[in-house]
Amino acid sequence: MVPDKRVTIDEVVAEIRDGMTVGIGGWGSRRKPMALVRALARSPVRDLTLVSYGGPDVGLLCRAGKVRHVVYAFVSLDSIALEPHFRNARQSGAVTTTELDEGMFLLGLQAAAWRVPFLPTRVGLGSDVLACNPRLRTVRSPYDDGEELVAMPALQLDVALVHMHRGDRGGNGQYLNVDPYFDDLFCMAARRRFMSVERLVDTEQLLAGGPPQSLRINRLMTDGVVETPHGAHFTECVPDYPRDEAFQREYAESARSDEAWEAFRARYVDVTEAEYQSVVSR
């Protein structure tokens, strides 16, 4: 049988220390491990580097003062195109960034997962990705074409956090929506990997939920698994639940003033996960 890798939210957060590089799965405001993100926002940790196809995970952690640097291609709430807390953090100079194309981002995770220092790509040539990243280098093909390409460096993560629909106690995970995003790559690119799931099931029950190819995360990729029902709220987690658009608007409006943020924080961040779920289900 599978090993028992069940952990608590607090045990996951305790693994994350000042200055670490944390990768967060999902995409925009879709299937984000928000229960873990909220707990991280409550923790005393600081100076994190975030690596994310960004959504409210990035905005919330920036606003909570946990972040020094963001590696990103976009930070969006989907139905609200620009993430207001991230915008404030950038425009006030609170965080620095690495500007990447979405595909370069994938190649950086893939390079880390494959333990190679970089992967070559045409992407970035001609754009200001290179000007914004003085450390980025190009590489010349050793073959007859001699083509010069961007050498996208590995995005090595200290910790990866992902959220899946179902999982077992051994750390196998299953997605039930239409897009797996890059959650498996985040896990493969990280030294410590934690998966939250909507529901823990017996391994025998996994295929009742979806076909074998929905088992995108296997237990080679995970060090801990935690059941967080409704744990992606307020991001989209179909088919279990859609994005909570009304709540998302309330979150976005909390970027308007310090008072609005403090009220949001007191009600929805500085509370336990159980209290949060109780409040938002009302």
């Binding site: 291609a73 620009l82 991230f86 194309d101 979405e102 595909g103 970035g124 001609g126 990705v129």
Partner: peptide, 11 residues
């Protein structure tokens, strides 16, 4: 003004 970021435009 922080806008979208690079998204997929370079690629």
């Amino acid at each position: 003004a922080q806008l979208l970021g690079m998204r997929g435009a370079p690629g």
